[in-house]
Design a binder for these strands. Structure first.
Length: 857
RNA sequence: GGAUUCUUAGCUCAGUUGGUUAGAGCAUCUGCCUUACAAGCAGGAGGUCGUAGGUUCGAGUCCCACAGAGUCCACCA
């Protein structure tokens, strides 16, 4: 027997291990249709945060739902080596031990990374287990395992040969702390306080100068021109003349270029082709020299004379001082402007000229756009609007910088010998040297949906069976990092989109709407919440509390309310189990009105739940189940069943409906549903995980009963209000007439807790005041009269309440009459709706008559 | 500059082909320890659905404008 209270700690203990041992998580039943989900691989040394908990819950819901519904489900787990993130952690750790990465050397450093990975890699698996994720661990992958590395090499070489990957000298975003190039996506722009420094650039051979404004004065060492707009009347005559770059005293030309904006700043721009992407373009147009003035750590190099060796910001300070001393600084104008920071290290990104590998995006992006036009092969986004976002991204289409000057990652399969270049995994022979760089983590992630399934392996059976995948779920924050890239790589190498449906969820925010972050200290640990309320509550709360694509404000009170809901389910189960111990089989032949009613309601619920599950509208599923279970099943049906509990049909109904409830809840709350399922006296499977998902059963739908019982329920509610409003005591007397059926009369008496002692005798009645509750429609009518002693105060109260009722009724009748006299409504609205309105109007009129009668007394 | 989301009860949010009197949790008020559950039960109060127009027989829902809040992309000498 169940305890009186739900204890999530007991319930969630050991179940996961048991499921895993039984092999329920494994795919492979080829008699069934496959259903595939690939888990977005978290950073191998990372920690599960609430966003992950949300993400894995969504996927587990789909995995469990489809598994129960007869599919061969593969939910494939894996982790990502997370190049920069992991490498920077290992560097930091070594540093604390007084070890420098470069002194240690590449091989030993990689060993340290592997050690780190092994040490922390298990954590994430424990967290999946806490959350109840039904992952097939026999297929677990890592972005540095054979599956991934082979695919990455194959893809790289093929793209290189097709000219889709090229090496180029360009301005890229440089992270001076991690000492690597970054892609545009890895740069985060933040509003930063800075200044326009106005500097004098003297025109050669004159005492006149140009006022050049810059936010990065230290780059003047790399200036090789000054540009003005050719249409700018102020300066156009100067084009062709030269200016002298201050401090370095270099003579550089004044050029005319549209890049110089007449309205911006002073209209004069210094051109530093090696340190600014726009200037780089200008430099190309005018054949300007590119002078690199910094090293890879953003310290000034030998080009800067006495500033050589200084950090960029230190150099800026000292340079400004010197400019001031030499009267070359016109002024400083403080501004707030947007500056790029590295996503991982949070240092200011430096635009930096270097040689890097790029993916040529034009053709790939076009293919992606075309694929989305194809109804049968497109990715369906949930919510839909993300498709537009993806398309826009594809239309912008700038090349993707994929080389990283790191060691932890997949090394670029390119070999050099003198001037020769070869693409190959193995060394082409003696004297060949491999490219030192590794690939962007996201390059391997982009292949993840097919690399994990053995696309590059000899045995392609998994790929053939489970690709393309069915469901992808992820936060919108990695739409461009990942979803976009998976799409074009999938299309390019498999000819198909890697997933059919892509569900985007939002971010988890703190209760005040701010982002959860370490610096604000407002983060919530999912594991703490699991300990406090259970994984079941956390999963249900996270997945049913917001609409797709929207952020979720984490509210512990709501999580606690979810716990209460589970406690309610627990107790409803407890009641059911207490009353059906002796049942041997479910027999739904001999059913009462309320049995038929709950079965009908239940089947409606099954239908709506399935519909919404298939559309990933989990918040609707949540609302539907919550209302059905709490309001219909617990508050009404269980109460009604108490008076009929010895009936075989009622016992069967209780068990049948409870079983269905547990099954529909199972994807959301796997642990508690399994706990209760195991105690059911009649069940079809050894675990709820592998039982069948409920189906709509037409033969268990009794529409007439639905209508009847809804009316009865209405009547009971009304009678209850009357009882209370008029302060009727338990010992009052009543007479009760119900025209339909003796059973219904009994049920109503029971539900209203009216007992034989309350029956009134005629002679008594005469001396008592009375109130009555009437209900009359075409399938059910009843009349309940309470007789009781009443004070003048009570009587006044009743009058007041009747007048109020009258007022409400009259306004409703007026509204409905207006509606029904509207020909447009009568002609256009659905017939049933109009008919319903008519019935209601009739009822309301009858009710009003009764009230008027009572008011006359 | 472009795109996009949000604005519904005191608070946090649902409301998906337009159709009863707009729902829930928490908080609040009234009455109940009724033998599944007081972390509960039975009720009550609380909303002119951001503002102003339009389409429609009918708008929280569709369209337009405006206001406020947020996010993404581009630009940022």
């Amino acid at each position: 027997m169940l305890d009186t209270k739900y204890n999530h700690l007991d319930v969630e203990k050991d179940k996961y291990e048991n499921w895993k041992e039984k092999g329920y998580f494994k795919c492979g039943d080829t008699s069934k249709e496959p259903f595939t989900i690939i888990l977005p691989p978290p950073n191998v040394t990372g920690k599960l945060h609430l966003g992950h908990a949300w993400d894995v819950s969504l996927q587990d819901i789909m995995a469990r739902y489809k598994r129960m519904d007869g599919y061969d489900v593969l939910w494939l787990p894996g982790t990502d080596h997370a190049a920069i993130a992991t490498e920077s952690k290992v560097v930091k750790k070594l540093k604390s031990e007084g070890i420098n990465k470069y002194d240690l050397g590449r091989e030993k450093f990689l060993e340290a990374c592997w050690d780190w990975t092994r040490e922390y890699g298990g954590n994430i698996r424990k967290e999946w287990a806490h959350m109840g994720c039904s992952l097939d661990y026999s297929k677990e992958r890592f972005t540095l395992d054979e599956y991934s590395v082979k695919a990455v090499n194959k893809v790289f070489i093929e793209m290189y040969k097709k000219g889709l990957i090229y090496k180029g000298k360009r301005i890229i975003n440089w992270d001076p702390e991690a000492k690597t190039a970054l892609s545009n996506e890895e740069v985060i722009y933040k509003d930063t306080k800075g200044a326009f420094y106005h500097i004098k650039y003297f025109i050669e051979g004159t005492n006149d100068y140009l006022d050049v404004a810059t936010t990065r004065p230290e780059t003047l060492f790399g200036d090789t021109a000054v540009a003005v707009n050719p249409k700018d009347d102020r300066y156009k005559d100067l084009i062709g003349k030269n200016v002298i770059v201050p401090i370095v005293d270099r003579v550089v030309p004044i050029i005319g270029d549209i890049h110089a904006d007449i309205d911006k700043g002073t209209g004069v721009v210094k051109i530093t082709p090696a340190h600014d992407p726009n200037d780089f373009e200008v430099g190309n147009r005018h054949n300007l020299e590119r002078i690199v003035i910094m090293d890879e750590t953003a310290h000034m190099n030998e080009e800067t004379g006495k500033y050589n060796g200084l950090d960029r910001f230190e150099c800026r300070d000292k340079l400004l001082k010197e400019l001031e001393e030499k009267d070359l600084l016109i002024g400083i104008e403080e501004i707030t402007h947007s500056v790029g920071y590295s996503e991982r290290t949070d240092v200011m990104v430096e635009p930096y000229l270097s040689e890097q590998w790029f993916v040529k995006m034009e053709g790939l992006a076009k293919d992606l756009i075309n694929m989305q036009q194809d109804k049968d092969n497109k990715v369906n986004f949930y919510p839909k609007r993300y498709e537009k976002t993806i398309i826009q991204k594809a239309e912008e289409c700038y090349d993707w910088c994929i080389s990283r000057q790191l060691w932890w990652g997949i090394r670029i399969p390119i070999w050099y010998k003198n001037d020769e270049i070869k693409a190959s995994v193995e060394s082409p022979g003696e004297g060949w040297v491999q490219d030192k760089d590794v690939l962007d983590t996201w390059f391997s992630s982009a292949l993840w949906p097919f690399s994990t399934l053995g696309w590059a392996m000899e045995d392609k059976s998994l790929f053939e069976r489970y690709y393309p995948t069915n469901f992808m779920s992820t936060g919108y924050d990695i739409l461009f990092f990942w979803v976009y890239r998976m799409m074009f790589q999938g299309e390019q190498f498999t000819g198909k989109n890697p997933f059919k449906d892509c569900y985007m969820h939002g971010l988890i925010r703190a209760k005040d709407g701010r982002k959860m972050s370490k610096s604000l200290g407002n983060g919530v640990e999912p594991i703490e919440m699991v300990e406090k309320y259970g994984a079941d509550a956390l999963r249900f709360y996270l997945t049913t509390s917001s609409a797709p694509g929207l952020d979720l404000r984490f509210d512990e009170e709501k999580l606690s309310a979810t716990w209460n809901f589970i406690n309610k389910i627990w107790n409803a189960s407890r009641f059911t189990l207490m009353n059906i111990e002796d049942i041997k089989e479910i027999n739904l032949d001999n059913l009462s009105f309320s049995d038929k009613w709950i079965l009908t309601k239940y089947n409606d619920t099954v239908k709506i739940v399935r519909k919404n599950m298939d559309k990933y509208e989990f918040q609707n599923v949540g609302t539907e189940l919550y209302n059905f279970i709490w309001s219909d099943f617990c508050d009404f049906y269980i109460e009604a069943s108490k008076f009929d509990i010895d009936n075989e049909g009622t016992k069967s109904t209780l068990l049948y409906v409870l079983t269905g409830i547990l099954k529909m809840l199972h994807p959301f709350m796997p642990f508690v549903t399994e706990e209760i399922y195991q105690m059911l006296p009649v069940k079809s499977a050894e675990s709820i995980m592998i039982s069948n998902y409920p189906k709509y059963e037409k033969k268990l739908v009794f529409s007439d009963t639905l209508e009847l019982m809804n009316s009865i329920r209405d009547f009971i509610t009304k009678a209850r209000i009357s009882k209370k409003d008029n302060n009727i005591k338990k010992d009052c007397k009543y007479t009760f007439r119900c025209s339909t059926d003796q059973k219904i009369e009994n049920l109503i008496c029971d539900m209203l807790k009216l007992t034989k002692e309350n029956i009134a005798y005629q002679e008594e009645i005469d001396t008592f005041e009375s109130i009555s509750v009437d209900y009359d429609n075409h399938i059910f009518n009843a009349n309940l009269v309470f007789y009781f002693e009443v004070s003048s105060e009570d009587k006044a109260k009743e009058q007041e309440s009747l007048l109020k009722q009258k007022e409400v009724l009259e306004s409703q009748i007026a509204r409905r009459e207006k509606l029904l006299s509207n020909q447009g409504y009568v002609n256009n609205a659905p017939k049933e709706l109009v008919e319903e309105e008519r019935t209601k109007l009739d009822n309301e009129k009858k009710e009003l008559e009764l009230i008027n009668l009572k008011l006359k007394d």
